[in-house]
Write a protein that binds this DNA or RNA. Sequence first.
DNA 1: GCCACAGTGTTACTGTAGTAGTACAGTAGT
DNA 2: ACTACTGTACTACTACAGTAACACTGTGGC
Lengths: 125, 125
Amino acid sequence: MYLQLIEQVRHAIELGALRPGDQLPGIRKVAEDLVMNPNTVAKAYREMEHAGLVVLRHGAGAFVAEIHGKDPGGDQRKMQKGSAVVRRAVNALRDLGLDDGAIRRLLESELAEVSPEVHPKEVHQ
Amino acid sequence: MYLQLIEQVRHAIELGALRPGDQLPGIRKVAEDLVMNPNTVAKAYREMEHAGLVVLRHGAGAFVAEIHGKDPGGDQRKMQKGSAVVRRAVNALRDLGLDDGAIRRLLESELAEVSPEVHPKEVHQ
DNA sequence: GCCACAGTGTTACTGTAGTAGTACAGTAGT
DNA sequence: ACTACTGTACTACTACAGTAACACTGTGGC
């Protein structure tokens, strides 16, 4: 759950929806919106700080870190182009009558094709 | 982890790699291959039996259930066509320089676009 | 026919990570 | 200084993964 939240924020940053210096909504606010415990959000925030995505200032708030990648602008272009690719693919897959679960399985199967048995786990250390 | 195993088996059945009546490898065998605990595999097997995917026979083994869907053949076709779609999309995304994590985020973002906040949880029971 | 053995799934029990709940501590504006 | 906001720390609970001993089935030898 807290991992999903991290992925969402990471995605927002990559897309440019969140920019360096921006303040993230407070822990309780997020917790209320997503119907989860404040502590769970706090854990996500701490993990993100550990990953260098955001900077936490006790009492002040959480802010998007200044530099999270080497090529901030390039990533946004790539993600936007990629988003179009994914949209077309998903539409085609849904036209075939496949549900979200089947689509996820197909993707995981394809991703595992090249680099098998490498699950995304080495992120935090 | 046991959920991933279930998804893999479900995928294999949908693709036709596993057919009704086929015997699944033993719990310990699978556990050794995937470097996980036999108990974890056992839990996956039990969940799959509960979902009607397989039939467990104490002392004999685990076998793929006779009927798991209404249109066995049609699903295979759809999945195979879908697999081609996904392959092309993934290749395009990788050519853009996107890694697996970014690709997953793009997919999740796209899937959430239409039916937001509906996480895959209603599978069992 | 019967028994031992190797295979199978099953069932306790333990440790650990994630989540929820609650109270605490720091910051900034008034 | 007060107050309303922020993140932090501690505790309890639940679910998952790991470990080991158990129970059932099928096969081969006797």
